[in-house]
Structure formats: structure tokens, C-alpha cells
């Protein structure tokens, strides 16, 4: 879920270090491939720039769009992930999403580019443009949301341990119910309405953008991974 830019100091160290390791592995793989296709370099850069400026366009809703799934469809999964990593890096430098959690934030948002890019290609690409984009974007957003909830679950477990440490007791023993699921339930209850609005907006905008671009530049999406 692109709009929960996790901040510094929320996640346990092993989670954000793991996030950095996984993200850097994907980024280095993408950079290695990009070195052999230098003509794509400006395309990745401008896609990252488009995603950044897209965040600033007001929709009249309490969410913003980031076009990560569309980046994966247009640039291919790896280059799309790279573009999203750059977006997250630049926003983390101004405090929007933490510096230490850059890796995990990039994985969460970049997963949309990876999943949508792979799925769009697997479904046959531009043969059935709008249905394929709709399905790819929808699955990508669901996967990303699932990853956010899983990350929150892990963070919740750590925060519960922290509460127990601060108060010098075991909360599970003290109250007799599962605090972690309590944390997760509250978390999901808070973010669920935002996620629903964001998913609808991201899906609608991705489809409308693809339709517009296809109308203006016919055959644009036929170019596949080598765009």
C-alpha cells in the first residue's frame, strides 16, 4: 500500500535491515541489466520523476497516487522497481518515509511494480490492453496491501515486547488475550477505509491513464519490457 510511508523508529532493526538487503539485491540486479541497455536509463529516470510529481496532484481525496504498478507495466518489473526505489529514496531525504526504512518501504511499494510488470507480461501484454492492465494492477495492489499488513503484524509483535519491557511484565500473561492480533485488528480497522479509497483511485487512474496514452500514442504498450 503506497500511502503508508512507514517512518523511522517503528520497525524492529532486523526487519528494516532485512528490507535493505532484499531491496539492494533487486536494485543491483536491475542496475546490472540497465548497464547493458543504457538507452532505457532516461526512461527509468523520467518515470520516477512522473511518479514523484504525480504524488503532488490533488485528487480531492485523502490519498495520493504513485503509479508504481503502471511503472512496472511500462518499464518492466525490474526497471519499474528501480524507478520506485529512486522515488522512495528522494522522499525519504525530506522525511516522507524514513531513511532507515527505505528498504522496506521500497519493497512494499516496489512490489506493485514487480507484480504488475510480471503479470501484465504473463497475461499477454497489450493484446487485451485494458483488462490485462486492470487485472495486473488489482493483483499488485492486493499483494502490496498484504505485505503492508504482514509488516505491521511483525512491527506489532516488536511493539508489544517493548510495552512489556517498559512496564516490566508480560502482556499476554497479564490480560490473557492475544495483544498482537489486537494490534493488528486496530491497525487494519484504521487503514481499511484509506486502503479501499486508495485502491479504487489507483486502479481507476491507472486504467484512465493507460486508455489516454493508448489513444494518443497508439501501440505504445506493445513495446513490452524493452520500452
Amino acid at each position: 500500500m503506497s500511502h503508508l510511508h512507514i517512518s523511522d523508529g517503528v520497525l524492529p532493526w532486523w526487519l528494516w535491515v532485512g528490507g535493505y538487503v532484499a531491496t539492494l539485491a533487486i536494485v543491483l540486479l536491475a542496475l546490472g541489466r540497465l548497464r547493458g541497455q543504457r538507452r532505457l536509463l532516461p526512461a527509468v529516470a523520467v518515470m520516477a520523476a512522473v511518479a514523484l510529481v504525480a504524488m503532488n496532484i490533488p485528487l480531492g481525496l485523502p490519498v495520493h497516487i504513485n503509479l508504481a504498478a503502471l511503472a512496472g507495466i511500462i518499464l518492466g518489473p525490474l526497471n519499474g522497481f528501480l524507478a520506485i526505489f529512486i522515488v522512495n529514496l528522494l522522499t525519504s531525504l525530506i522525511g516522507h518515509g524514513g531513511v532507515t526504512v527505505l528498504g522496506i518501504n521500497s519493497l512494499l511499494v516496489g512490489s506493485e511494480a514487480l507484480v504488475a510488470g510480471l503479470l501484465f507480461k504473463g497475461l499477454g501484454g497489450a493484446k487485451r490492453l485494458l483488462p490485462n492492465i486492470a487485472l495486473s494492477v488489482l493483483v499488485a495492489l492486493l499483494v502490496s496491501t498484504l505485505l503492508v499488513v504482514s509488516t505491521a503484524g511483525l512491527a506489532g509483535r516488536e511493539l508489544e515486547d517493548w510495552v512489556a519491557h517498559v512496564h516490566g511484565h508480560d502482556p499476554l500473561v497479564e490480560t490473557g488475550h492475544d495483544h498482537e492480533s489486537g494490534f493488528l485488528k486496530t491497525f487494519v480497522t484504521i487503514i481499511a477505509p484509506l486502503v479501499a479509497v486508495w485502491m479504487a483511485a489507483e486502479l481507476a487512474v491507472s486504467l484512465l491513464v493507460a486508455g489516454y496514452v493508448n489513444k494518443v500514442k497508439g501501440g505504445w504498450f506493445d513495446r513490452g519490457d524493452s520500452v
Partner: peptide, 13 residues
């Protein structure tokens, strides 16, 4: 802005 996002975690705990 990050304080608001962290607030979701803080409220959940």
C-alpha cells in the same frame, strides 16, 4: 507527516 503515519502504529499499540 511521518508523525501522523507513526501515529497509526502508536494508536494500534
Amino acid at each position: 507527516i511521518p508523525m501522523i503515519f507513526a501515529g497509526i502504529f502508536a494508536f494500534s499499540i
